Lab assay of single mutants.
Amino acid sequence: LRGKKKEELLKQLDDLKVELSQLRVAKVTGGAASKLSKIRVVRKSIARVLTVINQ
């Protein structure tokens, strides 16, 4: 992550946020259990990207 440019990080952040919103919709509509663990992974990925951006 640290080797990427800021523009790439921001694009990745947008993609992750879109994916997270889709997973939340799937959870509300009764999605599979595998998607519940994926939510945690995506949230941590967002946190990692934000950490690198803010450093």
Results as ranks from 00 to 15, higher is better:
Val41Glu: 12
Leu36Pro: 01
Ser37His: 07
Lys35Pro: 05
Gln12Arg: 13
Ala33Lys: 11
Leu9Ala: 04
Gly30Ser: 13
Ser21Thr: 03
Gln55Cys: 00
Glu7Thr: 07
Gly30Leu: 14
Arg40Cys: 13
Leu36His: 02
Lys27Met: 03
Ser34Val: 07
Ser45Tyr: 08
Lys5Glu: 02
Leu23Cys: 10
Lys27Trp: 03
Arg24Phe: 00
Gln22Asp: 01
Ser34Met: 09
Val28Arg: 05
Leu10Lys: 12
Gly3Asp: 05
Leu36Phe: 11
Arg40Ala: 09
Lys17Asp: 04
Lys38Thr: 04
Ile39Thr: 02
Ile53Cys: 06
Ser45His: 13
Leu13Tyr: 02
Glu7Val: 09
Lys5Phe: 14
Gln12Glu: 03
Leu10Val: 05
Arg2Pro: 03
Arg2Asn: 02
Lys6Cys: 01
Gly3Ala: 03
Ala26Leu: 10
Arg40Met: 13
Val28Gly: 04
Asp14Ala: 14
Glu8Arg: 15
Ala33Glu: 04
Ser21Gly: 08
Leu50Arg: 02
Leu16Gln: 05
Val18Asn: 15
Lys35Asp: 01
Arg2Glu: 05
Ile53Leu: 09
Lys44Ile: 00
Gln22Phe: 03
Gln55Gly: 11
Lys35Cys: 14
Val42Trp: 11
Ala32Pro: 05
Leu20Asp: 06
Leu23Ser: 13
Leu13Met: 07
Gln22Thr: 10
Ser45Trp: 14
Gly31Cys: 13
Ser34Ile: 11
Asn54Gly: 13
Ile39Gly: 01
Ser37Ile: 10
Leu1Thr: 03
Gln12Leu: 14
Leu13Gly: 05
Arg43His: 10
Thr51Cys: 07
Leu10Cys: 06
Leu1Gly: 13
Gln22Met: 09
Arg40Gln: 04
Arg24Val: 05
Ile53Gly: 00
Gln55Ile: 12
Asn54Lys: 13
Leu50Pro: 00
Ala47Ile: 04
Val25Ile: 13
Leu16Ile: 03
Leu13Gln: 02
Glu7Ser: 11
Ser37Asn: 08
Lys35Gln: 12
Arg48Ser: 06
Asn54Arg: 13
Leu23Asn: 08
Glu19Val: 15
Arg2Asp: 06
Ser34Cys: 10
Lys27Gly: 04
Ala33Asn: 04
Leu50Asn: 00
Val41Cys: 10
Lys4Thr: 12
Arg48Thr: 04
Ser37Met: 13
Leu50His: 04
Leu23Ala: 05
Thr29Asp: 02
Val18Asp: 07
Lys44Ala: 05
Ala33Phe: 14
Lys4Trp: 15
Val18Pro: 03
Ser21Ala: 09
Arg43Glu: 01
Thr51Lys: 10
Leu23Glu: 04
Arg43Leu: 08
Lys6Gln: 05
Val42Glu: 00
Arg48Trp: 07
Ala33His: 02
Ala47Cys: 12
Gly30Tyr: 08
Asn54Glu: 01
Ala47His: 10
Ser21Glu: 05
Val18Thr: 12
Glu19His: 12
Arg40Ser: 09
Leu36Asp: 02
Ala26Cys: 12
Leu20Arg: 03
Val28Pro: 01
Asp15Ile: 11
Leu36Tyr: 01
Ala26Arg: 09
Arg43Asp: 00
Arg2Gln: 06
Val25Pro: 07
Ala32Tyr: 07
Arg2Met: 15
Lys38Ala: 05
Gln12Asn: 07
Ala26Asp: 03
Arg2Lys: 15
Gln55Glu: 08
Ala33Val: 11
Lys11Met: 02
Leu50Gln: 01
Ala47Arg: 14
Leu10Ser: 06
Lys35Tyr: 10
Val41Trp: 14
Ile53Met: 07
Thr51Arg: 12
Asp15Gln: 15
Gly3Leu: 09
Arg40Phe: 09
Ala26Tyr: 05
Gly30Asn: 05
Lys38Trp: 05
Val49Phe: 07
Val42Asp: 02
Ser37Leu: 12
Lys11Asp: 02
Glu19Ser: 14
Ser34Asp: 11
Leu9Arg: 02
Gln55Asp: 10
Val25Gln: 06
Lys5His: 01
Gln55Val: 02
Val52Met: 10
Ser45Ala: 13
Lys5Ser: 07
Ala47Glu: 10
Arg43Tyr: 15
Ala33Tyr: 13
Leu16Phe: 08
Val28Asp: 06
Ser21Asp: 00
Ser37Asp: 04
Lys38Met: 06
Lys17Arg: 08
Gln55Tyr: 07
Arg43Met: 05
Leu9Val: 09
Val49Ser: 01
Ala32Phe: 15
Gly31Tyr: 12
Gln22Pro: 05
Leu13Arg: 02
Gly31Val: 12
Val18Glu: 11
Lys38Ile: 06
Leu10Glu: 01
Lys27Cys: 05
Ser45Gly: 10
Leu23Arg: 07
Thr29Glu: 01
Lys27Leu: 09
Thr51Val: 06
Lys4Tyr: 06
Leu9Gln: 01
Lys38Ser: 04
Val28Tyr: 07
Leu13Ala: 03
Ala47Trp: 07
Lys17Met: 06
Arg48Asn: 07
Thr51Ala: 11
Lys27Val: 04
Ser45Gln: 10
Ala47Asp: 04
Gly30Trp: 11
Gly31Arg: 14
Asp15Met: 15
Lys11Leu: 01
Glu7Arg: 12
Arg43Pro: 13
Lys44Glu: 04
Arg2Leu: 15
Ser45Met: 09
Gly30Phe: 14
Ser45Phe: 11
Lys11Thr: 01
Leu20Met: 06
Ser34Arg: 14
Gly30Lys: 14
Lys17Tyr: 07
Gln22Trp: 06
Lys38Gly: 07
Leu36Cys: 01
Glu19Asp: 03
Leu36Trp: 07
Leu20Lys: 04
Lys4Gln: 03
Asn54Asp: 02
Lys5Gln: 01
Leu36Thr: 01
Leu9Gly: 03
Val52Arg: 13
Glu19Gly: 14
Gly30Ile: 15
Ile39Leu: 13
Glu19Leu: 14
Glu19Lys: 15
Leu9Trp: 11
Leu20Gln: 03
Leu16Gly: 05
Leu16Ala: 06
Ser34Ala: 11
Lys17Gly: 04
Ile46Ser: 00
Ser45Glu: 03
Ser34Asn: 11
Leu16His: 04
Leu36Arg: 02
Arg2Ser: 05
Val41Met: 12
Asp14Lys: 15
Ala32Leu: 15
Gly31Met: 13
Val41Asp: 13
Gln12Lys: 13
Val49Lys: 00
Arg48Leu: 00
Leu20Cys: 02
Val41Ser: 10
Leu23Gly: 04
Lys17Phe: 07
Arg43Asn: 04
Val28Ser: 06
Gln55Met: 09
Arg2Trp: 13
Asp14Met: 15
Val18Leu: 10
Arg43Cys: 11
Ser37Lys: 14
Val41Pro: 01
Val42Ala: 06
Glu19Thr: 12
Glu19Phe: 13
Val41Phe: 10
Lys38Asp: 01
Lys27Phe: 03
Leu50Met: 09
Gly3His: 07
Ile53Ser: 00
Lys11Gly: 03
Arg48Pro: 00
Ala47Gln: 12
Lys6Asp: 00
Arg2His: 02
Glu8Leu: 14
Leu50Cys: 12
Ser21Val: 05
Glu19Arg: 15
Ile39Pro: 00
Ala32Met: 14
Leu13Thr: 03
Arg40Asp: 03
Ile53Arg: 00
Ala47Tyr: 04
Lys27Gln: 03
Ala47Pro: 01
Val25Arg: 08
Thr51Glu: 12
Gln22Asn: 11
Arg40His: 08
Leu23Ile: 04
Ser34Pro: 03
Asp15Leu: 13
Ser37Thr: 11
Lys6His: 00
Lys11Val: 02
Leu9Ser: 03
Gln12Cys: 11
Ser34Glu: 10
Ala26Phe: 12
Ala33Ser: 06
Ser21Lys: 08
Lys44Pro: 01
Ala47Val: 04
Lys6Asn: 01
Lys4Ser: 08
Val49Ala: 08
Lys17Ile: 06
Ser34Trp: 08
Leu50Ile: 13
Arg2Ala: 06
Arg40Pro: 02
Asp15Ser: 12
Thr29His: 06
Leu16Asn: 02
Leu20Ser: 06
Leu36Gly: 02
Lys4Met: 14
Val49Arg: 00
Lys11Asn: 03
